[in-house]
Design a protein around this nucleic acid. Structure first.
Length: 209
DNA sequence: AATATGGGCAACCGCTTCCTA
DNA sequence: CTAGGAAGCGGTTGCCCATAT
């Protein structure tokens, strides 16, 4: 959505769409120097033609140094499923239990991978999660899992039984970061704003802050 | 080789919740 | 207690790219 750099017909001062390398650097440098603070003020003070909301999202989901991207581990997959069974679509709450993961990433992961998988294995007479659980058990009979203790009854749907399982979908789930723009530093495309966080942070450090 | 299709994901929108004066 | 602003959150969109035809 809004990936086109539509400089909004309403307010030409507000930029939308994908962030450029320059904007990323400005935001990183500014936060490194001044901290996070109030996002709307921060956006203005940093000279970014972005809303505070946009800055916050970009920082939290992408630029933060502690954010982990891609390579969601089987343990994390399992934990996501467990916690989703417990809390439903409370992505931020789930994300709090996965250090370095963002709610957006987990949400996307759920929608693109797990939901797809649920559809694939969907059976009219069988609970989706039970089906998944069966498949998981086929894969791994071993490995203890404390996370299953987390599962509690939930009103909207019955929770799965994932006990003693790891690596839910090793074959179906390729690693996320293989072609991720932020991990490949491919400036050869038309947007020239794809680079790795390592690049960004090393540049940031070189800038002396 | 060209075109169609679908998956993945970044980023926006609108609503809700929290905080402060 | 109330109102206004900021932050948080979940849902949704649309572009890019890989794969299928």
């Amino acid at each position: 959505m809004d990936k086109k750099p539509c400089n909004s017909s309403q307010d030409p001062e507000v930029r939308k769409g994908p962030w450029t390398m320059e904007e990323d650097l400005i935001l990183i440098n500014y936060i490194a120097n001044h901290g996070e603070g109030v996002w709307n003020s921060l956006a203005k003070a940093a000279g970014l033609k972005r809303t505070g909301k946009s800055c916050r999202l970009r920082w939290l989901n992408y630029l933060r140094p502690d954010v982990r991207r891609g390579n969601i581990t089987p343990e994390e997959q399992l934990l996501i499923m467990e916690l989703h069974a417990k809390w439903g679509n409370r992505w931020s709450k789930i994300a709090k239990h996965l250090p370095g993961r963002t709610d957006n990433e987990i949400k996307n992961f759920w929608r693109t991978r797990i939901q797809k998988h649920i559809k694939q294995v969907d059976h009219p007479h069988q609970n989706n999660f039970q089906q998944m659980s069966l498949e998981i058990n086929d894969h791994h009979q071993s490995s203890s899992s404390q996370v299953s203790n987390i599962v509690e009854p939930m009103e909207s749907y019955s929770p799965p039984s994932y006990q003693g399982t790891l690596e839910p979908f090793p074959a179906q789930f390729p690693t996320i970061n293989d072609h991720h723009p932020s991990s490949c530093c491919t400036n050869d495309n038309n947007n020239n704003n794809y680079w790795s966080m390592e690049d960004i942070w090393s540049m940031q450090l070189l800038n002396g802050d």
